[in-house]
Structures are given as C-alpha cells and as structure tokens.
C-alpha cells in the first residue's frame, strides 16, 4: 500500500526503525507534550513490530488490531509517564501492548482453540532464541546473553511464555511436564536472569 510512502503522513512503515532508542525516547517526550507528528512518527517507527508482538500472542488479527489501537491511545495519554531510567523506550511501549494483549487473551481464552494456528511454525521451535542480535538494542543483547546461560527448559519456557502468552498450565501441557516442574523452570530461570543482568 502506498500509505507508507506519504512523506508528511502518519502511516506505518513495515519494520521498526532501529536508528536508536534515543530517537524513540525523544518521540515519546514530544508526544507527551502534545506533538501529534511525533506521535505519528512513533507509530510509524514501532507499530509494525508491536503489531507483530500482539499478533503472536493473540493469533487473531482483529484482536491484535484492537489491542494495538487501544495501546497507542493509552501511549498518547500516558506518554508523560515514561522515564528513560525505567527501561528502554521500546520495551516500555511493548509492555503496554503486551499487557493489553495478555488481558485480552486471558479474557477470551475459553473460546480460543489452543491448536497451533498457521504462521506459528517459524516461532514454534522452542530452542530457537528469536532475538536477532544484528538489530537488537544494547539491553536486548545483554538479555540474550543472559538467556543463553540458562538451561534449555528454563530458556524455552520463558521465551514461549513471553511470545505466546502461555500460562503455567499450558506450558506444562506443551512440554508434557508436571506443573510444578514448569513453574520451577520459570522461577529459576527468572532468578538467574535477574542475577545475570545485575552482574
């Protein structure tokens, strides 16, 4: 579609602009002061990646569209609450989108078949760590290094929980492991990530 090419218009480019977290921080700050163009640029720079995140968790386009829409309305209203010391700007945006997606998923879960939907295969390999180092921020590279230190099941359960919004019970079913075992993979994995990031 030609929307992406409109020079003065707020239409999404297909990929995240990785020209730097500083730019995203500036755009969030400008949006907080009511700059609509900055807000549109923020959407253009991050919308596709955040849509992919919501879609991955929800596996339904209509829900993912609604979640992205609600999240950006929220971001516009609460942009002033962002502080760089509270984390990288993209992670902050992603948390807002992901929380909305998880809320939606937990609400709708009873009617969603958990059978794997099409389009999941490239993600389904739980041993695969989907962080692409070439494009990742410094925070993401650090996190990747810490994930690499975990035992396989710890890393796999955390990565699947993050990208697919799976609960303890669902992960237990997926790995055919007792619930308590999966819980402890995740707990130990999280403790080790925390320790690793604080080193």
């Amino acid at each position: 579609m030609r929307f992406a090419r409109r020079p003065d218009g707020p239409y999404p480019a297909p990929a995240m602009d990785t020209s730097g977290p500083d730019r995203l921080t500036d755009l969030i700050a400008a949006a907080a002061s009511g700059d609509r163009r900055a807000f549109a640029d923020l959407y253009r720079a991050t919308g596709a990646k955040l849509f992919g995140l919501a879609l991955r968790i929800l596996r339904r386009r209509d829900w993912a569209e609604e979640v992205l829409q609600e999240a950006f309305v929220n971001i516009w209203r609460h942009a002033g609450a962002y502080r760089p010391e509270r984390g990288a700007p993209f992670a902050w945006l992603a948390t807002i989108v992901r929380n909305r997606a998880l809320d939606r998923l937990r609400r709708e879960r009873p009617v969603v078949p958990l059978d794997d939907a099409p389009g999941r295969e490239s993600w389904a390999d739980p041993g695969k760590n989907p962080l692409d180092l070439a494009l990742a921020s410094a925070e993401a590279r650090r996190l990747k290094a810490c994930l690499d230190e975990l035992d396989g099941p710890q890393r796999e359960s955390i990565v699947l929980a993050y990208y697919e919004g799976r609960t303890h019970e669902e992960l237990a079913a997926r790995f055919a492991a007792p619930l308590g075992t999966v819980k402890s993979w995740i707990r130990r994995g999280l403790i080790r990530i925390k320790g690793c990031l604080e080193r």
């Binding site: 596709a48 992919g52 992670a91 945006l93 993050y162």
Partner: peptide, 12 residues
C-alpha cells in the same frame, strides 16, 4: 521487555 525486539514486524 527487550525480548519484544524479537517479535516479527507485521504491518498493521
């Protein structure tokens, strides 16, 4: 949160 960078870009 930085895990989000690993999500695929899908144009809405």
């Amino acid at each position: 949160g930085p895990l989000a960078e690993g999500a695929p870009a899908v144009e809405p």
